[in-house]
């Protein structure tokens, strides 16, 4: 009930390795779109390895807190019931949606998550570009209500692992579109390309883990359009391939901003405001970038109207 009998992510590692090799070879020997830059791939893969090590360091604390919550649970949900897995699948995926949205829309959590978005490539190694600072950021707290409700910690851990494994294969440009019914319900390479895009029109969209339905429900769904190919990375792309810069740059940025804040309110804004927030509005947020993009589109439409 407390510790998972198996870890879907660990079990999937051989598949991850083989899939990356296959994608590289497809890019080399066929017309499939699969660009690899060795230094970019090295950063992604080292981030994935480091994330495992960081997980070991913080795992004890997270496990202890989870066990404490489990001892104060409301119900005891059986791990062997099919209905329990169905409910958990939906509840965990909804939790993931809100975690992911928060991780993009609030700077302190963006600082932890931004690493996953710093690659200017979109290939299977990008999926493995995982954070080292998730434990510090505390986003794992969002999954505790599931345990409090009565889902065993082992069950939640397995479902989280399944979600992470699902999200691996969608980090590719090799697959254009899945069948329409699949695109309507599930997160797909096309939907997730939009999520990783830095084009203004695509910012802050498609936060889904497995079910894209959540984005449709909460109004954050944006479809990929062929006339505007996705450009990947962050709005302000990193200037180098330095691994530690990649891991800590946003945390350092927050620390510098807070140190220079003129009031507690400003400091709170720098930490909990949207990425790019500044007291005088002189920096760009996703909101301002999108507003300027819309203004440009409207101006273009007006100038081309008869």
């Amino acid at each position: 009930m407390l510790k998972a009998a198996f870890d879907p992510v660990q079990m999937a590692i051989p598949f991850f390795v083989l899939a990356v090799i296959l994608e590289i070879l497809l890019g080399r020997f066929t017309k499939a779109k699969a660009n690899y830059e060795a230094r970019d791939a090295a950063v992604s893969l080292t981030m994935g390895f480091g994330s495992t090590v960081a997980g070991l360091l913080f795992g004890g604390v997270i496990f202890a807190v989870t066990v404490w919550v489990w001892h104060h649970r409301l119900f005891t949900i059986p791990m062997t019931a099919v209905w329990a897995w169905v409910v958990l699948f939906l509840a965990e995926d909804l939790t993931y949606y809100w975690f992911h949205r928060l991780a993009h829309e609030r700077r302190v959590w963006w600082a932890s998550h931004v690493n996953h978005h710093t690659s200017t490539h979109y290939n299977l190694t990008t999926a493995l570009r995982q954070t080292w600072t998730g434990g510090v950021a505390g986003t794992w707290l969002l999954w505790l209500p599931l345990t409090f409700l009565g889902f065993p910690p082992a069950m939640v851990a397995i479902q989280k692992g399944i979600s992470l494994v699902y999200q691996f294969w969608i980090h590719t440009e090799v697959i254009k579109r899945m069948p329409r019914w699949f695109e309507a319900v599930f997160n797909t390479p096309s939907h997730h390309r939009v999520h990783h895009a830095r084009n203004a029109r695509y910012l802050d969209a498609n936060y889904a883990g497995i079910l894209i339905v959540w984005d449709r429900v909460f109004g954050t769904f944006i479809p990929e359009v062929d006339e505007e190919p996705c450009r990947y990375g962050t709005v302000k792309n990193l200037a180098n391939f330095n691994l530690l810069h990649n891991v800590f740059h946003e945390w350092i940025g927050i620390a510098k901003d807070v140190a220079g804040a003129k009031s507690p309110r400003e400091a709170l804004g720098y930490v909990f405001g949207p990425p790019g927030w500044s007291p005088d509005g002189s920096r760009d947020t996703s909101h301002t970038l999108k507003a300027r993009w819309r203004a440009r589109v409207e101006a273009d439409n007006a100038s081309s109207a008869p």
């Binding site: 660990q10 590692i13 390795v17 990356v20 090799i21 590289i24 070879l25 890019g27 080399r28 699969a34 660009n35 690899y36 830059e37 060795a38 791939a41 090295a42 893969l45 080292t46 994935g48 390895f49 495992t52 090590v53 070991l56 190694t125």
Partner: peptide, 27 residues
């Protein structure tokens, strides 16, 4: 077991980076 797992992962990283450098098609 953990050491073997970490060692294996590290070897996997090195292998994949080498394959990406050798066969990868950059833009």
């Amino acid at each position: 077991a953990l050491l073997i797992q970490l060692g294996g992962s590290l070897a996997g990283v090195v292998l994949l980076v080498a394959i990406a450098a050798w066969f990868g098609v950059a833009r």
